[in-house]
Nucleic acid binder design. Sequence first.
DNA 1: TTTAGTACCATGTGATACAAGGTACTAATT
DNA 2: AATTAGTACCTTGTATCACATGGTACTAAA
Lengths: 108, 108
Amino acid sequence: MNIENTKAQMKKGVLEFCILSILSKTEHYPSEIIEKMKEAKLIVVEGTLYPLLTRLKNDGLLSYRWEESTSGPPRKYYKLTPVGEQFLKELNITWNELVEAVNKTTQN
Amino acid sequence: MNIENTKAQMKKGVLEFCILSILSKTEHYPSEIIEKMKEAKLIVVEGTLYPLLTRLKNDGLLSYRWEESTSGPPRKYYKLTPVGEQFLKELNITWNELVEAVNKTTQN
DNA sequence: TTTAGTACCATGTGATACAAGGTACTAATT
DNA sequence: AATTAGTACCTTGTATCACATGGTACTAAA
């Protein structure tokens, strides 16, 4: 039992939410998402992100388009679908409820 | 893919934290913990809680004492050990960092 | 032609919440 | 006295998901 493990578990629950949030502003390809997450102090690795994006796409929350790159292989630019937008709205509510719930247990 | 699943994932990460928080105020036996969690809108079931408490005890974060009950079988009252107190302090920091990290990705 | 950098992807493992079912004790009902 | 209801503890099997690891393929520079 170490703090890192628990930390990882906490992060696990919000990854999906954060990634959808990032993609709601504007489209991104995976490396950009990893960079954005890193800026927010949420380290994600490729082996986590790629399957997650594929899952979200298969579930109709994301779509993507290929774009050629001048500095390497083509990139997959992901963005939210209308269904994804709606899902994200609900996740926002869920997140706020969770924060409040945790506050309740940690206070009083 | 449904919202409930994602909700469950979010909750998963904070269960340990919430339970330790609840036990930091005063000792409780499992049914009381379930009740406290329910009040905070965090539904936990026995099959989740018992193994978790056992794990936390085996890791030295919790201790317990038996107490006879006049209305059924004896109860296991759990409380935090000094190590558990320290661990909880760190989890508090971790949680606050996570909330801030999520805010970063959802804003700007 | 080789090397470095970038980008996409798949497989196996570990952690953990939950569903479902089981044992055992007390108290009230029949 | 026997049965039922309520309470409390516990175990096993399953599904989900992040991560470690390793692989393929494209471009550009050495």
